[in-house]
């Protein structure tokens, strides 16, 4: 751990806490709505305060739906050893649904409603050897 250099695919998406990774979203101080990723303002038309502040999302959610990305996406996406992967839509509570890759689960084991845990995994290695991480979801209880 921590020997090789690491970075995330983009800054400001994930925070590594001592208890594990958490997604960084926003919670509006005015209307209480939670968003992901962080928002510059609050799109709730009934909210008059428009005061989103950074907030860590729960580290678990339930699977709402999913698919398998069978074809390699265009070049902006990068992944070492490309092969088809599961993509899930995960209900994080408070009405917030987040999309992300699934890991540690076979397609035939995936069930809508299953509890998932947030993890981070490298997608690819940069030319200078830096591991580039993204967030993923894995069946709860298997993350360690």
């Amino acid at each position: 751990m921590g020997k090789a250099a690491e970075r995330f695919v983009v800054e400001g998406l994930v925070e590594q806490t001592p208890a594990g990774p958490r997604l960084i979203g926003s919670r509006c101080r005015g209307c209480g709505t939670t968003y992901f990723p962080q928002k510059a303002s609050c799109p709730n038309p009934a909210c008059t305060d428009k005061a989103p502040v950074a907030a860590l999302l729960p580290d678990q959610g339930t699977l709402y739906s999913y698919t398998v990305q069978r074809y390699q996406p265009p070049p902006l996406f990068r992944m070492d050893g490309w092969e088809p992967y599961l993509l899930g839509l995960v209900d994080m509570g408070d009405g917030l649904q987040v999309m992300g890759m699934l890991t540690g689960v076979k397609e035939q084991e995936v069930r809508i409603g299953m509890t998932l845990q947030l993890v981070t995994e490298p997608l690819y290695c940069d030319d200078d050897g830096t591991a580039v991480l993204t967030y993923k979801f894995t069946p709860a209880g298997t993350a360690l």
Partner: peptide, 18 residues
Amino acid sequence: WVAMGATNPAYWAIEARR
């Protein structure tokens, strides 16, 4: 794209699966 490589059909597929 960078975080999950979600193509447009993946969005429609997630709706269809649901």
